[in-house]
């Protein structure tokens, strides 16, 4: 089983014969070696774009150790806590694995940064980052997690750029996932009829609509009525 398969197996509890088997379910009797299916994406790609996505998905960038370290880091950046889901629940490491292939400019920073983490952890504690205690890990992060933003990003030390990129990718991966969007409580992307900012929100932010402006706006009760105008361009329906 290759590294990707093992990761997928952990996440999905193994995939056999195209059937997702949850970790707690008993294995089907005739289960063979789990076969990994490449995740399908269907969102209006041209054939050429679809092929390019499949190619990226079939390739592996991070090795197993790197992927484990990356996952540890994602979990430190956004851990699950109580009701709140974390970066690992949202499969953020897989997302970062995709992005590092999609945007190869990230590769030296991420790969180099992971090496730096092990080097630093080795120097300080004679341990690989993953083998260190959470307290030790955090003591290293404290040195790289607070950039001086008066210095342009490209001029900051690599390890600081690395951590900023990891934090960016972790947060964006989480908040663009189903779990993250739920937590953020984004309410759009669904058919609705916009009829202005709710009163309590206007009050909270100290603004209001003026009547003259509102009088020009669409009367949503008549949105289904065929538009007609008089000769001067005045809407009469």
């Amino acid at each position: 089983m290759d590294r990707r398969k093992s990761l997928k197996s952990i996440l999905l509890g193994g995939v056999a014969g195209g059937l997702a088997v949850h970790g707690c379910s008993p294995k089907p009797e005739n289960a063979t070696e789990p076969v990994v299916e490449i995740k399908k994406y269907s969102y209006g790609r041209t054939p050429k774009e679809q092929k390019a996505i499949e190619k990226l998905l079939s390739e592996t960038f991070f090795n197993e150790h790197e992927m484990n370290t990356l996952s540890t880091l994602c979990n430190l950046i956004l851990p699950a806590e109580g009701e709140l889901k974390g970066a690992l629940d949202a499969e953020v490491p897989d997302f970062i694995e995709f992005m590092v292939k999609d945007i190869p400019e990230y590769q030296p920073t991420l790969r180099g940064g992971l090496m730096w983490l092990d080097h630093k952890c080795g120097t300080e504690f004679n341990l690989l980052f993953n083998a260190a205690t959470e307290e030790q890990q955090k003591s290293i992060l404290d040195g790289i997690a607070f950039p001086d933003i008066s210095v342009p990003e490209a001029e900051r030390p690599l390890e600081i750029q690395f951590f900023s990129l990891m934090r960016n990718l972790t947060l964006t991966g989480y908040y663009t996932s189903k779990l993250g969007i739920e937590e953020l409580d984004y309410k759009g992307n669904s058919p609705n009829v916009w009829d202005g900012v709710p009163e309590d929100v206007l009050a909270q932010h100290g603004v209001s609509y003026d009547e003259e402006w509102l009088a020009k706006c669409v009367d949503q009760s008549k949105r289904g009525v065929l538009a007609e105008w008089d000769d001067d361009g005045k809407l009469i329906t």
């Binding site: 916009w194 900012v197 206007l202 609509y209 402006w213 706006c217 009367d219 105008w229 361009g233 809407l235």
Partner: peptide, 10 residues
Amino acid sequence: FFLPPPKPRL
């Protein structure tokens, strides 16, 4: 010959 505009956002 305009359709009516939507209300402004916050």
